[in-house]
Design a protein around this nucleic acid. Structure first.
Lengths: 141, 141
DNA sequence: TATTGTTATACTCTATAACTATA
DNA sequence: TATAGTTATAGAGTATAACAATA
């Protein structure tokens, strides 16, 4: 792979990030179960920032899945009282989805639990933490 | 959150990593479809390093799922000719799973595609890349 | 004509519970 | 008794195709 030959450190860093994301992803399931949600439902809640209603089409894009899935996904979240469907005024084909107060609370609980930093992070010096933030921000922008 | 007050940079870094892992995870689905696999099947292949057979129980642990799922998952991968079941000699309750040559090729294709570094990585200086590798390695060890 | 959301369908994933074989 | 793997079951996730309403 040409890129690897020319840029070994970039590839090392990327592989570590990818490995991390795989591991991190397996943590979603048990946490979701604890909150009585499915992993897919957690991903929907994650995409729904409080007070920012978005069309169902945009949810499908964010989940990288077919639009037909979103119907059932939103159905189940709505029956749990976590989200609301509203017809759009501008385009009457569109339905926008927003969190209910209950949904917003559950979303906050999920995000906080996912964002709980691991032990390892404490071992880094403040300077290293700052460096990491700066580099990641540029990398993921 | 006490940890956030005392350690804002650590939390910033962690939140960026978590956000990255969510985004990265959505990339698995389309890639899996391209390889004619399900996301779950890709995760099994990922856990099966070439020439390192592992018990089904260990697969369940790695996937953070119930052991009963692994039966069907391995069934389907086996019928595709990607993995092999073998009875263990030491403990006759155990079945160890290993990649077939075809499975190893598909695993390599998946891992290589997932590990393809993004544009942003090229924008970092070599020094920054090295720093990132060093910090991530300590963080994820 | 193209797009948004829905429905029907078929298949996969998943946890639970009950089971067999082995330790 | 405890553990590894299987089976049956029920519910959820998923893509495909066809559809109605709207743009």
């Amino acid at each position: 792979m040409a890129i690897k030959r020319h840029n070994p450190h970039a590839c090392d860093a990327w592989q570590l990030l990818v490995k991390f994301s795989f591991t991190q992803n397996t943590q979603v399931s048990p946490l979701a179960a604890e909150l009585e949600l499915s992993p897919a439902q957690c991903h929907v809640l994650r995409l729904l920032e409080p007070d920012k209603p978005i069309p169902m089409r945009q949810l499908a894009d964010g989940l990288c899945c077919d639009a037909s899935n979103v119907t059932g996904l939103v159905d189940r979240l709505e029956s749990k009282g976590l989200v609301r469907r509203t017809a759009s005024d501008e385009d009457r084909r569109v339905k926008v989805i927003e969190l209910t107060p209950k949904g917003a609370r559950l979303r906050a609980a999920f995000m906080e639990r996912m964002a709980a930093p691991p032990e390892g992070l404490e071992r880094l010096s403040v300077r290293e933490q700052q460096t990491l933030v700066r580099i990641l921000a540029r990398l993921l922008e």
